[in-house]
Design a protein around this nucleic acid. Structure first.
Lengths: 192, 192
DNA sequence: ACCTGAACACCGTTCAAGT
DNA sequence: ACCTGAACACCGTTCAAGT
């Protein structure tokens, strides 16, 4: 990459992060280019799709979250490990509004630039779920994809002005539904 | 209303229903006008906002759903009544993709043409919830707005290609979380 | 090798001009 | 009283032309 291209690339990323933080994952691509001071074509050559841009934007955090899941596999309580990770996953998707919908469609589209990162994260979550199913109280009918769907659902709730204030409570509602055989949902709150 | 205007209005509604069924609640307004064979300005005078169009499109079903809630208030089991209604509410929002997000934002925007219909439905649902909290096993910390948030979350799940196949299972997961003190989530399935 | 402005085909929304 | 095409300010995306 030529040095001016490198400069463009980095400035584009910094700007994109700010704009996406402000406007959400469906922010105008043109607006990002404009605010970065480059033509729209320059943005599109560096990031041929919105998914490609978001993959670059999110990959670091997605990998972090994947590693946290891996680390939690050796935590003493399988249930607590799952709930802790779930909490972090929901906190992550709430950073950028609209990102859960993008991630969901990336999962069903193998050609999306975001697909691999999302699928990797899902695998890591699936292992935590499996352990909680084996030695914990997690619902045995649930799949890793279901877990992702519920994370997405909580992300969606967080994106809605009318519901977002209640998202901590609704997290506990859903967490207690996953750990179906726990005595009370309040157990989930102690570990945060 | 002049007779040609009346004709336009009805044709617009029929077309809009078809297009929204096909493309979802965020279908292009211009496309609806085009397919109805009128200019965009004609659509916008009949329905000054997308919410106004969707209110007209949905009002009948929303009122039906509200009345069903009212009727279920005298059902023998408060829990079953709540779950039955929840099931119908989720089935309804799944008809038009994207409609839950529109409804959620209508709830937080009193000036939306959809606001009244949605708020009315929420009230009816809230009464069913309250009864299940009083004489049933519904979680006492839950509000009617939380119930709506969960309906929306299930609608969102139904809108995602990657998750929609599992929405019946996830309905049961969430229904069991609302009726927190039931012995098993399988109880919820008998009444459908 | 990279960038750019202009172009294409859209969108929601409005308005002057028509009948 | 109602409708219309054209207009305005956008959008994602592409491409020929520049340096």
């Amino acid at each position: 990459m030529r040095s001016d291209a490198k400069e463009n690339y980095h400035h584009l990323l910094v700007t994109a992060r700010a704009v996406v933080a402000e406007e959400g994952a469906n922010a105008s691509m043109r607006d990002i280019a404009r605010k970065a001071g480059v033509g729209p074509a320059t943005l599109f050559r560096h990031f041929p799709t919105r998914d490609a841009l978001l993959d670059t934007l999110l990959r670091g955090s997605l990998e972090e979250l994947t590693q946290k899941a891996n680390a939690l596999e050796s935590a003493p309580s399988a249930d607590d490990a799952l709930v802790t990770w779930l909490h972090e996953a929901v906190a992550f998707v709430r950073i950028y509004s609209g990102v859960v919908t993008l991630m969901a469609s990336a999962l069903s589209d193998a050609s999306s630039a975001l697909h691999a990162s999302c699928a990797g994260l899902r695998s890591a979550g699936t292992r935590l779920l499996a352990r909680a199913q084996a030695v914990g109280t997690a619902d045995k009918n649930m799949t890793g994809s279901d877990l992702f769907a519920l994370i997405g659902a909580l992300g969606w709730i967080g994106d809605q002005a009318s519901y977002s204030a209640r998202s901590d409570y609704l997290f506990n509602v859903i967490a207690s539904a996953i750990l179906i055989n726990r005595p009370s949902r309040d157990v989930a709150m102690g570990i945060i």
